[in-house]
């Protein structure tokens, strides 16, 4: 996403709106070096974004196991975000490349088994992209909230 796409307004206040999904919990697995720092930057820049997200910090996308996504859904998350360094920027040179293969495959499998893929998001957010982080979180939260209340994931008891 280009910077210009990020609307200025999103940096301003964001009111919490209840909706069909109640208060959907979003769990984000992020790498320490890029996305976590990007999220910090959003903070130091005092940008505002949805408070539905809970961030779990890992050293690298290479450490973000697809199992985490499953576990997050199991524990009631309505959306899961995985985010790390842009291709080529990995602090550990290739962690994100290896994981990208796994995510592509795993996501494919999730979709095939009937998980609504709108609920799993992947992004590359660098340490300088505080604004991208903000728009990713906001857009993802909005998307989750707009999804039908009926859960389509296969990991929680109906």
């Amino acid at each position: 996403m280009e910077d210009k796409d990020v609307k200025k307004e999103e940096h301003k206040g964001r009111k919490h709106v209840e909706d069909s999904q109640g208060d959907p919990r979003i769990i984000a697995f992020v790498c320490n070096w890029c996305t976590y720092s990007g999220a910090d930057l959003a903070g130091t820049s005092r940008m505002k974004y949805s408070d539905n997200v809970r961030v779990i910090k890992l050293p690298c996308t290479g450490r973000i196991d697809p199992l985490f996504i499953v576990e997050a859904f199991k524990k009631g998350a309505k959306g899961v975000l995985v985010s790390g360094c842009h291709p080529g920027d990995c602090h550990y040179t290739s962690g994100n490349y290896h994981s990208r293969r796994k995510y592509a495959t795993f996501r494919d499998l999730l979709g095939y088994l009937g998980v609504d893929l709108d609920r799993v998001e992947f992004s590359w957010v660098s340490a300088s992209e505080g604004n991208k982080w903000v728009s990713i979180i906001n857009e993802f939260t909005d998307k989750i909230k707009s999804l039908p209340g009926k859960s389509t994931d296969i990991f929680t008891k109906k």
């Binding site: 009111k15 999220a39 903070g43 130091t44 005092r46 505002k48 974004y49 809970r54």
Partner: peptide, 23 residues
């Protein structure tokens, strides 16, 4: 991290507090 990723980015005190408790 309840500053950069909570207090500085959220406004609703109750919800920010809930998030801080979670973290």
């Amino acid at each position: 991290n309840i500053r950069e990723q909570v207090s500085w980015v959220h406004e609703d005190k109750e919800r920010a507090t809930a998030k801080a408790v979670d973290l």
